[in-house]
Simulated scan of single mutants.
Amino acid sequence: MLISNIEIVPGKKIVKHLGMVQGNTVRAKHAGKDILAGLKNIVGGELKAYTELLTEAREEATQRMVQQAEAIGANAIINVRFSTSSVAAGAAELFVYGTAVVLE
């Protein structure tokens, strides 16, 4: 499955437009890691627990989008976008969407 954040794929022709596909997930870290992240917030620096949370969420949401695209016969997803929102303290939703197409 080809995944691209641009509207066209150079050298390829879109022969069928199958519509929007999407995937999402809501993830949370356990309280212990949330407390450690809070302490790190005081001294500054990367909050690695949250970086891991969003990386895992992005991979899972993308996998769900790809499964949806495969189910409708797509071989590519173009114009892919990601969105992240806070759902609760320590929990975030990651949403990914794009246009499923058949490329020639």
Rank of each mutant, 00 (worst) to 15 (best):
S83L: 00
V87D: 04
N75W: 01
T51H: 15
E46Y: 13
V102Y: 00
A92Y: 11
A91Y: 02
K16L: 08
K12H: 12
K48D: 13
Y50T: 11
V80P: 02
V43C: 06
T84L: 01
R58P: 04
T55S: 15
R58H: 10
I72C: 07
A71M: 11
G19S: 05
V96C: 04
T51A: 14
T62H: 01
I42W: 04
T25L: 04
L39I: 12
M1G: 08
I3W: 00
E60I: 10
T55N: 15
A69E: 06
K13T: 11
G38K: 12
I8H: 05
L39C: 09
A69Q: 03
H30G: 12
N41D: 10
I6S: 15
A57D: 04
S86Y: 06
I78M: 03
I42F: 08
Q63R: 14
A31F: 08
E46V: 13
V80I: 09
A37E: 10
Q22T: 10
T84A: 10
A28K: 08
L47Y: 04
L103N: 07
N75E: 12
H30Y: 13
L2I: 15
L39H: 06
T62P: 02
F82G: 07
L36C: 08
G44S: 03
Q67N: 15
A91C: 05
T55Y: 14
R64M: 05
T55I: 11
G32C: 05
A92D: 12
V96G: 01
Q67A: 15
A91L: 04
V26P: 03
A92N: 14
L103F: 04
A31G: 13
V9F: 00
G44Y: 01
S85W: 00
N24L: 05
E70A: 14
I6D: 14
V9D: 03
L54W: 03
L18V: 11
A92V: 03
I3H: 01
E104K: 13
N24K: 11
A92K: 10
